[in-house]
Design a protein around this nucleic acid. Structure first.
Lengths: 162, 162
DNA sequence: ATTGCAATGTTATATTATAATGAAAAATAA
DNA sequence: TTATTTTTCATTATAATATAACATTGCAAT
């Protein structure tokens, strides 16, 4: 396992710490880039980080509006776009849903393991897979730009449970 | 390149032959399994095979209804489900669209190269990638079930053109 | 203070997908 | 054959996901 892997959370993981460090990374990155982490954006990032399972845009919206606010779909989609653009979240294409990015944000080309049982997602970055894909692409005369690699299956906790 | 790769079609490729062989495979497979390749299903398969770029369900529907027919969405989705179930087409998750399966249908775990320019898709099957993913999954304690691997980029024809 | 721009708000609508129910057709059994 | 069952297809309605278009707000730079 490389140092950049983010494992499945496990029942015991300290989510307070986990979300805190996500915020710190986000703040540092925005400061660095002169991007504005407005209250709205911060709130959406927080909502997404409250779960290790991807949330749909309308799930996020519902949570945003839980206290009687009246945000509309374009607001959440715009905000998600901002977070995506800056690599603070990932979109899971096979679920039309969004999950926090645990990595340094320029480390792209992530591989996601998605547990069909608990719904949690682990993000990993593997040299070997990247190389295998590049090799295959080269043989096909293809120029890789945006890989989508989402592996559905079962995480250890879930298949240990049966 | 392994023998199971389906390359990008190329400007000169004989689409008549290409679609014919797809039909032959589909017929053989259905005969083998006692599945019924009804006129409706055959028609949808044909529509999908008319393009090497994935078609959305509503694109398929429009083409089905081009002669004034009045098929409704559930009809096309049901038919697509049948074709998916039997491995005659693939769903491209990152596009919400469908493309013909060029392979022997039990050869699963396909990797798709999707050209963002011409929209065409090439399906490949690489041992090396499969192994790299398994290795990564094992390290993460993850049991692989359904990999989604869709690589967006540019095919040779398109970047040769500029 | 004004201008310009980024962020957010608002309304409407487009796109993708499914639930629920029933009719028709085909396969199977009696 | 006729009855029975199952599969396929039709129909209506609606759910879920996403964006277009335009208005407003608020801050930053001059």
């Amino acid at each position: 396992m490389t140092s950049s892997d983010k494992n499945f959370p496990g029942r015991d993981h300290d989510h307070g710490v986990c979300i805190e460090s996500a915020f710190e990374r986000a703040e540092a990155l925005c400061r660095e880039r002169g991007a504005k982490l407005t209250p709205l954006r911060r709130r959406v990032l927080e909502i997404i980080w409250e779960s290790h399972a991807p949330l749909g845009a309308y799930d996020v919206l519902q949570r945003m509006n839980a206290e009687g606010e009246r945000n509309a779909p374009p607001t959440v989609y715009r905000t998600l776009d901002f977070l995506l653009k800056h690599g603070l979240i990932h979109r899971i294409e096979s679920m039309n849903a969004f999950v926090g990015c645990a990595m340094s944000a320029d480390a792209h080309r992530a591989l996601f393991f998605i547990c069909r049982d608990c719904g949690n997602v682990a993000e990993t970055h593997s040299e070997a897979i990247g190389e295998a894909i590049e090799a295959s692409a080269t043989r096909a005369g293809f120029l890789v730009e945006t890989p989508v690699m989402e592996i559905s299956g079962r995480c250890q906790e879930c298949y240990d449970d049966e």
